[in-house]
Design a protein around this nucleic acid. Structure first.
Lengths: 235, 235
DNA sequence: GCAAAAGTGTTTGGGTTACACCCATGC
DNA sequence: GCATGGGTGTAACCCAAACACTTTTGC
């Protein structure tokens, strides 16, 4: 007990969002959680996370959480918040104090469908999150608030889709996250006017109606979205 | 060298904004910086900050930075970002790695005018920031981007003013931060429509023109501005 | 009365919303 | 041909910018 600094341990956790099909066919936001195998909160569900490696950037640690729990690559990765309430370990004042720097990530539809699940890793729909360890319910609430907020003023929804996508797919993502239907015509105009997507020239065939154009995300964006902080934070 | 965790130290720093009068009479955003008295970056200017106390919340540590450098109370205090690049200590890989959780704060005009300055604490106008220690120039740039951004969609400008203020004073804050003039009539309407201020009923006399009404900030706001995170973060 | 800023009214234009309508494909 | 979603056109509406104008004080 001779440490004078470093009494506070640092961890990095990640809230990982994907759209997954629900019973009934509609899709819903879902996040993977891991079961704790140690005290405190043994057997409770918690966000994936762990200590920061010696030479690792914060965002690398978050990507590592994602990799080790779901085996997926993030389409979008951004810092959420640093949680450091002294009591957040559960009120036991003798427990080691941990400050968690939390990231949030989006992963693509098809990849998420193939994601591993096991005894200790399970995907939960966001309206069915159980009681979690530590203050992780608050963290999930905040991440949800952030993703819904950010979708309405920024263009992050493509993070749930694959490389190429139709505007109907993109619109469907907005509809699920915002929880309301959007006018197809107006949606098309606003997305095209924003310049965030570019048509590939290809069309999707095999549908029982007029074949829709395929689009790709315009990489020229993303920059300046976070002001001066665009350096290795974004995937 | 037998520590396996805790190799990463945690610090809390604060970017403190005030509006201060420039030569010529106009006002400009300014921040206080402290001179480093130890290596690395000895004698360079840096953001006020320090290690986290054992039982202290992150926001309390930020308020403590503010108190110890300027003797002021924050009108607004919010987490900015956690900076954790492994090389941010200056490229010397043998140096201890530090992750900084940075807050930003607003302090009132009159108080800031009375703030202490000394050999080792000095206020800099934001367009005259020198080369700083560590990655603090990046941090200041990001904080500046955030304050300008937040002013345009949120109602934080009152953080620079005293308890009661005229709409002309509030408008002047917006004009300085956004760097452009605003139409008095339209400004009045938009502020009144937002419901963020309430008239006190009092008027300011002694001016050489029609006496303006005095307003007060409406405390019913601020809540829900940060979603589920409104608990002790805001002053 | 005059200057100066407070405060109100009114017009205009850009952008979003609602919704009608045509287009291209599979069956 | 018909159903289905892709895609386009357009009128109504809302809100913000621009700016003229009236009000109230000190000198």
């Amino acid at each position: 007990m001779n440490k004078t600094e470093g009494q506070v341990n640092l961890a990095v956790s990640t809230v990982i969002f994907a759209l997954r099909p629900q019973a009934g066919g509609s899709r819903q936001l879902a996040i993977p959680l891991v079961r704790r195998i140690r005290e405190p909160y043994r057997d409770a569900w918690a966000l994936p996370g762990g200590p920061l490696e010696r030479d690792e950037d914060l965002s690398e640690a978050a990507a590592r959480n994602l990799q080790s729990t779901t085996n997926l690559e993030p389409r979008f990765l951004e810092q959420l918040y640093a949680f450091g309430d002294p009591d957040r370990s559960g009120g036991d004042s003798s427990a080691a104090r941990v400050v968690s720097i939390v990231y949030w990530a989006l992963v693509g539809n098809e990849e998420a469908a193939a994601a591993v699940e096991s005894e200790n890793v399970h995907w939960f729909f966001v309206d069915e999150i159980p009681q979690l360890a530590f203050d992780h319910n608050l963290i999930v609430d905040y991440a949800l608030w952030r993703v819904r907020n950010k979708v309405s003023y920024s263009r992050v929804a493509h993070g749930f889709l694959n490389e190429v996508f139709t505007l109907a797919e993109l619109r469907s993502v907005y509809e699920v996250i915002l929880g309301k239907t959007l006018d197809p015509g107006n949606f098309r105009r606003s997305v095209e006017a924003s310049g965030t997507v570019v048509a590939t020239g290809e069309r999707l065939s095999g549908t029982s109606h007029r074949p829709p154009q395929l689009y790709r995300y315009n990489d020229a964006f993303e920059l300046s979205e976070n002001g001066p902080l665009t350096r290795g934070e974004k995937k």
